[in-house]
Write a protein that binds this DNA or RNA. Structure first.
Lengths: 190, 190, 190, 190
DNA sequence: TATGAATGAGTATTCATTCAT
DNA sequence: AATGAATGAATACTCATTCAT
């Protein structure tokens, strides 16, 4: 018998769901798992969110961008920092986009990933790219960021898993510079 | 004859399972789905493979490499071709590694992906890289390939989804050259 | 003022419950449905009535008779009018007895229907019947009335659903006369 | 662990469902109840019938008519015999049409009742009726039969519950004769 | 050996009801 | 006194798996 605090319970459910969905994917997570983690009865999920799907949607709707402001030439460096070094423990230690791939059997999820990738990565990089095939190059750079996130957390390849920001910096500068057609910094202050 | 049928049925089950697991992920696929696609009784899956999990393992054990032989400087180009342009219809149109991410809720699967990425991508690229942090740079390049595969098929971002090999070639040459520290070709003959 | 509100809320709950129970039956109605219709919290049902069952009982306890006074020979005509033409919108458009059949899975309900049929129909008709098997004939006539109510509203057979009092009058006079052993009128003034 | 006999199991489930649905109505019956009565696992209901609803539909689709052949003037008598004296123990002791009223919260069920009443009762009676409002009179007579079924089994009014065919015969002859406009017999041989 | 009947634990979801605030 | 948060048992239905024939 929990404290009767609607907002607190809702928050606990969201917290638990975020972690489970990230770690085990949508299909691999049961509403009982979530409720169990949150220490409340599973019925409350339906009371507060309507359905398992709506709970999932609510979670995937507000993925933190975490790119803050800063100089243009450090944008890619900030993205790398966000993908690789930000504290994603609430999402099971992975960037939420990477975690969502686990649920990409569902077209809805793919659609959400697409929106997220396009609006917060591709679009921002496109504005920096010089030359004609700016969109393609922005996507290729976004692909690299996504790939880094995956190899780092899902696959956990040895070198990337142990690398620090400084180790990555020169390569970030080189590849970003190449793809965007202008000099980019490999480190950021934020 | 009898032996032939048994093998044929086994093969049909593998074929159906490959497609289903790729498209819907491990959790999203039921043994009845697979058996239905193969046109046989679900019981045979247990007879032939022991369990759903063992069937899955058998499938993920033999991912085709498809990198063939060819000049060293075209290796990355061949990898891009494999990830992006090879005919993966048997895996639902995605590179099997990308498809497997859908089942990465299970540690076993992550382990398999890791092995696959390391042995057929990182190791091969590492041999080409000059300089001291060769492994890291090989992983960063592998990350790019994986990322490209994901953005192309799972996320389906507009520019990458529509790009041809020629569009990618110059960027492949540039990034691969950057990361490996030696000139690489953006196209391959194969 | 406070007392007034309490009574008003109680009345709204009864009103909503009457309609729901009539239309969807006891099992098909949830306390949340009722509370929602009444615009109040479901908890009040338990506060005011004790349980869903007790609320149902309270409703089925006071079925309006609506037979008014009038000449004996018009009694059957008045009953027909009541069953078929009275305004039962508060009960979902059906005579409450007919609606209760929807909840006749529960022996309690059957018991209530029995009481109602016996006291307000059979008994009254029995008093008019001549001859020895008066009770049986009164029941047979009651059965007719109940059957008419069902075919008219539940089953909605075409002719009966569209018939007016005048269309029924001659047959009412004939059948009632037959079963009661004395001339009866097919129309009533009320 | 039952005998592995598809048809036998299917039949047991149908038998159990028939009884439960009749006695407790659609909403008051759970698939576990049915499976429990049949002594098999509830999953088989879905295997064999697809859903609870489809099982219900299959049962209500084949209500035995039981009116056999015989002289025209005994048709009503045969109907009364069928409604009141036939052995409906498989339907919980009530005529299936009467039992279905218990599930009449669902429009589908009402539709089925309508079809059944119209095709096997109203239509047959209509053919016998003389005069212009034949359909209405046929429906009025059908209403009587339905009402008798209800008062006899659901409501269980004392006189009707104890009456035999002979007690009813004269009244059947009288009312049927009145409504159909031609002499009818109150008894039948079948 | 192979078919498919049977199982029971699992799924998301709804329900009447209780009880803290 | 009254609101609404919490509960847990029940619902229809699906699943991987077993086992009789």
């Amino acid at each position: 018998m929990r404290k009767r605090d609607r907002e607190a319970t809702r928050a606990r459910l969201l917290e638990a769901a975020r972690l489970r969905f990230a770690r085990e994917g949508y299909d691999g997570t049961s509403v009982r798992d979530i409720a169990g983690d949150a220490g409340v009865d599973a019925g409350l999920i339906f009371r507060y969110f309507g359905s398992k799907k709506q709970l999932f949607d609510e979670i995937t709707a507000d993925i933190p961008a975490d790119l803050l402001d800063g100089p243009e030439e450090e944008l890619v460096a900030r993205m790398v920092r966000s993908v690789v070094f930000a504290d994603w423990t609430r999402y099971g230690g992975e960037h939420p986009l990477v975690a969502m791939l686990r649920s990409s059997a569902h077209e809805d999820t793919r659609q959400r990933i697409r929106e997220e990738v396009c609006t917060t990565y591709v679009r921002a990089l496109e504005d920096l790219a010089e030359g004609d095939d700016a969109e393609l190059r922005a996507e290729l750079l976004s692909a690299w960021l996504v790939g880094i996130g995956i190899l780092r957390s899902v696959v956990a390849t040895p070198a990337l898993a142990g690398a620090g920001l400084d180790d990555l910096a020169p390569h970030v500068a080189a590849v970003a510079g190449d793809l965007l057609g202008r000099p980019m910094s490999g480190t950021s202050d934020a």
